[in-house]
Amino acid sequence: MTIQSEQRDLLYSEEEEALRSVVRGLLADHCDATAVLARIGTAQPHDRELWKALTGGMGLAGLLVPEEFGGQGATHREAAVVLEELGRAVAPVPFLTSTVIATEALLACEGEAAAELLGALASGRTVGVLTVPLTAAPGDAPTDVRAKDGTLSGRVTGVADAIVADVRLVPTDAGLFAVEATQDGVTVEPRTSLDSTRPLATVSFDNARARALGSPAEPAVRRGLRAGAGLLASEQLGVADWCLTETVRYTKERNQFNRPVGSFQSLKHRLAQLWLEVVNLRAAARNAADTLAAGSADADVAASLAQAYASPATVHIAEEALQLHGGIGMTWEHPVHLYLKRAKADSIALGTVGRHREELAALVNLPAP
């Protein structure tokens, strides 16, 4: 595969910075750490009021949906900025699963049924989920759900945000189908997940009626998962940036031996390393978002590259944040554990690091030694 060499600006535009400011302000008012911690372990892990504010008030659910289908007609760069801020707040909303993955899968389909669903997702009043395991990587085969005479039967485990979904996009060997949440024969069983802000569930279908969206399902699934993997790096950037910012702030305030602990040389070195990792992570995430926005042939390379770097870097930064917060970081009252759990969960979401490294090596023709 030939890597394209066109030069693009990865810096944030004025419009993107303005979008960031508005989203960050909204999250500061509706999604502070106390509110997120209060939802842990409850029957309502998703913040529906926050989702309503993001989608109804700001129209963010339709960022990637063309205007002719009722969306904003924006690009992956704007969606990446929103994901950065949602990552900084570990916001319990289905933006990645519905606004990015499910929407991108529908954009690969043709016909009135897909167009109708795109409009519904763009409004934010309908949440869609691509019914595949959260660990599924771009290029993975469809699930073993079977389609027969307009009905679906089968079981899919580890589906993110399935609990809150109004419609489920289900890939089968016969194509991609849409199943309403209220349809008979659909069962959703919540599962214990490490990251409670993005809950998992097992979805079962027992002769559930479904609408056909397109055949085969593979192109739509691949498009959705590729966009998800590429933009997941922006969410990971938000997680990492919060961890670094809060850790620097804490080490400036925490005194030991009559001086801030952040003034100790050994901690300075550790913080400097984290800063370098965040800078590199931002470059990888911005490249992935910009490449997706441009519709470049290098989108697969950019997405795999971003995940190959972002996942281990974000986990390391979150682990260091917890350690450098000392005793307070080990308590449930401090939000740093939410970021570590999100970092750990994201590291196996949409393909593991090893899987993306193998994919990247194949794409750039770099055989193993």
Rank of each mutant, 00 (worst) to 15 (best):
Glu180Leu: 14
Ala294Phe: 04
Asn255Met: 13
Trp332Gly: 06
Glu78Gly: 07
Gly56Asn: 12
Ser304Glu: 06
Ala108Trp: 00
Asn255Lys: 14
Leu11Asn: 14
His30Gly: 07
Gly228Met: 05
Gly71Arg: 11
Gly41Ser: 11
Arg125Met: 05
Arg226His: 08
Leu244Lys: 05
Leu117Pro: 02
Asp161Thr: 00
Ser196Ile: 07
Glu116Ile: 08
Gln44Gly: 05
Gly238His: 04
Asn365Gln: 14
Ala240Lys: 00
Ala160Met: 11
Ala308Val: 04
Ala208Tyr: 10
Gly354Asn: 15
Val159Thr: 04
Gly329His: 04
Ala349Ile: 02
Ala28Phe: 06
Asn258Glu: 11
Val23His: 00
Arg270Tyr: 03
Arg357Trp: 07
Ala160Ile: 05
Ala293Val: 03
Val132Gly: 00
Tyr309Val: 05
Asp32Trp: 05
Glu235Asn: 03
Glu277Pro: 06
Arg146Asp: 06
Ala43Ile: 08
Gly326Cys: 11
Phe257Gln: 03
Ala105Arg: 10
His334Tyr: 09
Pro190Leu: 09
Ala303Trp: 01
Ala178Arg: 00
Ile3Asp: 11
Val221Thr: 13
Leu54Trp: 00
Asp298His: 10
Leu267Ala: 01
Val353Arg: 15
Glu84Gly: 03
Gly70Trp: 10
Lys252Val: 00
Ala313Pro: 10
Leu37Asn: 13
Leu50Gly: 02
Glu246Met: 07
Leu134Pro: 02
Ala321Thr: 02
Gly175His: 11
Thr291Met: 08
Ser196Pro: 09
Phe177Val: 09
Ala227Cys: 08
Ser263Met: 09
Leu324Cys: 08
Asn255Leu: 13
Val170Arg: 03
Gly139His: 06
Ala162Met: 04
Asn280Thr: 08
Arg77Leu: 07
Ala318Trp: 02
Ser347Asn: 00
Arg355Glu: 02
Leu276Pro: 01
His316Phe: 08
Thr34Gly: 15
Val170Leu: 08
Leu86Lys: 05
Val248Arg: 15
Arg125Glu: 13
Thr187Pro: 01
Ser263Phe: 04
Asp241Cys: 10
Gln273Gly: 03
Thr42Tyr: 11
Ala283Lys: 09
Arg357Cys: 06
Tyr309Ser: 04
Val23Glu: 01
Leu350Phe: 14
Phe177Gln: 09
Leu305Tyr: 12
Ala160Asp: 07
Lys52Pro: 01
Asp144Arg: 15
Met330Pro: 05
Asn207Trp: 07
Val203Lys: 00
Arg270Glu: 11
Ala297Gly: 15
